[in-house]
């Protein structure tokens, strides 16, 4: 590619140099990623560095505080019983919902790849919950898991003779709230599913035909062609689902707070007896309800490192099994 442009080099030395500068992969690569890089340096970097700094201070929401070293982190692991509950909740939530979301959306994407009547209708149905605007989805999902005979899930259970459950507010069975939270994921598979579907559509059909001529069965087609060729998408979806689940925020907050005042006030953002405490709602509670920005930043940094570690783990694991169209493995 580079040599081709060289041929058209202008006579002036400085322009030639300049052009040479732009005629290799490094220059081109940087030219293409410049928009993002500029945006990151202008608006992304400062808030990030500031958060890291804040996590070592006793800053409040309103004032920058003093440097206190690792005290916030120490407190987080040794003196904060609520954070222990957060960790337990998150472990359960993440362990169940990540495989659930990935598995189900891949399953539906494979089904929807086939042509059949009603295909597009179903693709719409699976995505519609994700199209709802916040306030509506808050009311809808509170309604779905409302206690008593008002709740839709309870009405369904009533059809098979199960007494109404108090999903979000049960005094004895605190885990019901977490179960409801995990279940809501079922309504939000749409995004992940259509990304899988897009990935499936990018697999050239002639690969399958060639394999079929060689006598491959459908399981073999899946493991030898679909899965390897889908792996970039799989990597993407896995990482995004990890981020999305570790950083679940809207739904736990909606479930934790009553609807009387809309969204902002009233009720703990962590749910009855912290039954819905998640990483992000905990950060929110610390930063905005209790004004402890320094401490909230420490939790945020921890969540950041954990998310990054998991994402890198996925990237590096995938490197071994991934096929990329450009046969290039350097990135992973």
């Amino acid at each position: 590619m580079a040599d081709m442009t060289m041929r058209s080099a202008a006579p002036l030395t400085w322009t030639t140099r300049l052009r040479c500068l732009f005629n290799n992969d490094t220059a081109r690569g940087y030219a293409f990623i410049t928009p993002w890089l500029v945006g990151f340096l202008l608006f992304g970097l400062t808030p990030m560095l500031l958060t890291f700094y804040n996590s070592f201070t006793d800053s409040t929401l309103f004032k920058t505080g003093e440097w206190i070293g690792f005290k916030n982190y120490e407190r987080l692991f040794t003196k904060d019983p609520t954070f222990q509950i957060v960790l337990n909740n998150m472990a359960l939530y993440v362990a169940v919902s990540i495989p659930l979301v990935i598995g189900l959306s891949l399953f539906f994407a494979l089904l929807l790849r086939e042509q059949f009547v009603g295909n597009r209708v179903f693709r719409t149905i699976i995505y519609v919950p994700s199209l709802l605007v916040g306030a509506a989805s808050a009311v809808l999902f509170r309604q779905l898991f409302s206690g008593g005979q008002l709740g839709l899930i309870n009405q369904l259970l009533g059809l098979v003779g199960i007494a109404p459950l108090n999903w979000l507010n049960d005094s004895d069975r605190l885990w019901l709230a977490m179960a409801a939270l995990i279940a809501t994921n079922v309504w939000f598979l749409g995004g992940t599913t259509i990304i899988f579907l897009a990935g499936l559509h990018a697999i050239p059909q002639d690969y399958y035909e060639a394999a079929r001529i060689d006598g491959a069965g459908s399981w073999k087609l899946f493991t030898r062609i679909t899965l390897p060729l889908l792996s970039p998408t799989l990597v993407f979806n896995t990482i995004m689902v990890i981020i999305g689940q570790l950083q679940a925020f809207d739904m736990p907050l909606i479930f934790a707070r009553g609807m009387a005042n809309g969204f902002s006030s009233g009720g703990s953002p962590l749910g009855y007896k912290n039954s819905l405490a998640m990483f992000l709602t905990y950060i929110y509670e610390r930063a905005f309800v209790k004004s402890e920005m320094g401490y909230a930043s420490a939790v945020a940094v921890l969540v950041f490192l954990l998310t990054l570690a998991l994402a890198l783990f996925v990237l590096f694991t995938a490197r071994r099994f991934t096929y990329f169209g450009d046969q290039e493995r350097a990135t992973r």
Partner: peptide, 23 residues
């Protein structure tokens, strides 16, 4: 080849243009 030279610059020019807009 001339159209090629034009397009080679385009990536970099675009980035500068975006910056100018912001400013």
């Amino acid at each position: 080849m001339s159209h090629y030279r034009l397009s080679a610059r385009r990536g970099a020019m675009l980035a500068f243009a975006l910056l100018l807009i912001v400013v």
